[in-house]
Nucleic acid binder design. Structure first.
Lengths: 128, 128
DNA sequence: TTCCTTGCAAATCGTTTGCATAATG
DNA sequence: CATTATGCAAACGATTTGCAAGGAA
């Protein structure tokens, strides 16, 4: 279980940190491969899973069938454009209280929530 | 594109309506097959997809890797138990306003949101 | 008769995993 | 040296799809 350093993991994490969008495993693979041609898709998946288990990155399941990854683990929300598929960070007031609202009268323990907003992004909304 | 009646579709819809949980395609298949042994998994998938496109049912992507289906299309929220995997309806005050909160200052159009709450359900929370 | 729907099986897609080898501590 | 990590390819599970045959309008 003792973690050992690996060039591959380092590059995957670094790549994720320099991106403001939320790349999929395949995009990570394609990009890291330019600098490190020998890396395999399996290694990318293994490291993305490991990093998210360590809490260093977040796995985003926005409902488009593909997992997205985010190196920004601070609490924030995402918007998914139904037109172009883009996943964008939202700058918005906290809505943490919805967990309490949901918990009122619920027979169980609510630990948290997952929310994403959808619609058309700035670009796709513009007239053409 | 003109829709034609089919016994299979009718039974799938009926089955979904009599369930308060949120069955997966496979569960629908297993159950409908008891009354209609010849039905195929492909047909179940095709009809679930068709019905959800028609807006007669809702496809739930709660992040467990399997799609769940709900015949109740009225706006409501779901809770997913991280212990037993169960998906339950939540009776709670509307949180529709979070769409407005998210839209404030956002350059684009927000059409809606998807939220699910997670934690441990009543049964799984109980001491044992 | 038209053409929507089905059953079946093969195909797809994203992701995971087994295994022998390479790299790390 | 003891272990973790890798590359590769095969395996997986959920869902989709092509096609010839069946059923509804």
């Amino acid at each position: 279980m003792a973690l050992k350093h690996s060039k591959q993991r380092e590059m995957i994490k670094a790549f994720l940190m320099e991106r403001k969008d939320h790349p999929t495993a395949d995009v990570v693979y394609m990009n890291v491969r330019q600098k490190y041609p020998n890396i395999s898709l399996g290694t990318v998946y293994r490291n993305l899973t490991l990093l998210s288990e360590l809490g260093e990155i977040t796995r985003l399941r926005v409902g488009d069938g593909v997992d997205h990854f985010d190196a920004d683990t601070s609490p924030h929300y995402h918007f998914v454009c139904t037109e172009c598929g883009q996943v964008i960070d939202l700058e918005m007031e906290s809505i943490e209280k919805i967990t309490d609202i949901a918990g009122a009268g619920f027979d169980g323990r609510i630990a948290g929530h997952v929310t994403y907003f959808y619609g058309t992004c700035g670009n796709c909304t513009k007239p053409n």
